[in-house]
């Protein structure tokens, strides 16, 4: 415990981190939310989430978005609140400075590396399939899985979902600014 009261872990953190992710995923599923393999930013007061598995470019996106507060560069917590969804940072990932608290979500981008920036809107089914692929630890319990599926379905109904093809430079921001 450091002077600020934060618990600081040193050494091998992986097994504990793994256990925390599973526990948090389960808790989130019961609270109309989920953990998503994604980086998250706050842009003009709204949360933008960039989802994808390892190697998809999540950390690259945060690195190319220096002026935006970062929620996470690896795992974002998403939770429904009323008619909308909020994105929260998590302690998982390598970003040095993350914002505490959440932001009302504006859009979710599924990452795809490419030579030229391109934004493609996803229809409901594609958006949901894509989202489920990137949710951590789908529940091993029928009712919980059902609740998660309903939450994910609502997410794709209420939040704009896109595939973002991007080269390793900030040119993709022009597409996002135009939304």
């Amino acid at each position: 415990m450091d002077q600020s009261g934060d618990l600081v872990l040193r050494g091998s953190f992986w097994p504990l981190e793994r256990a925390l992710k599973v526990c948090m995923s389960l808790i989130m599923a019961h609270k109309d939310g989920f953990l998503l393999h994604a980086s998250g930013l706050i842009y003009r007061g709204f949360g933008l989430v960039f989802s994808g598995r390892s190697g998809s470019g999540k950390t690259t996106i945060t690195g190319l978005s220096r002026t935006c507060p970062i929620l996470s560069d690896d795992i974002v917590a998403i939770r429904r609140r009323g008619e909308t969804f909020l994105a929260f940072g998590t302690p998982f990932g390598g970003a040095e400075e993350i914002v505490h608290g959440g932001a009302q979500m504006k859009a979710c981008f599924s990452l795809k590396k490419g030579k030229h920036p391109l934004l493609t809107a996803l229809a409901s089914l594609s958006a949901l399939k894509d989202l489920l692929k990137n949710i951590l630890s789908l529940p091993q319990n029928g009712p919980t899985a059902g609740r998660l599926l309903e939450t994910a379905r609502e997410f794709t109904r209420r939040i704009e979902c896109y595939v973002l093809t991007f080269p390793p430079d900030p040119s993709f921001w022009k597409l996002i600014e135009a939304l």
């Binding site: 089914l125 949901l128 399939k129 692929k133 789908l138 529940p139 029928g142 899985a145 599926l149 309903e150």
Partner: peptide, 25 residues
Amino acid sequence: NGQVAWRIIEGRALLITPWDSMMHA
């Protein structure tokens, strides 16, 4: 199987099978 979570979206069934935590379209 009542344990399978599923929804019909755009005319296609999307399933989650809890025993292997897999999604099936």
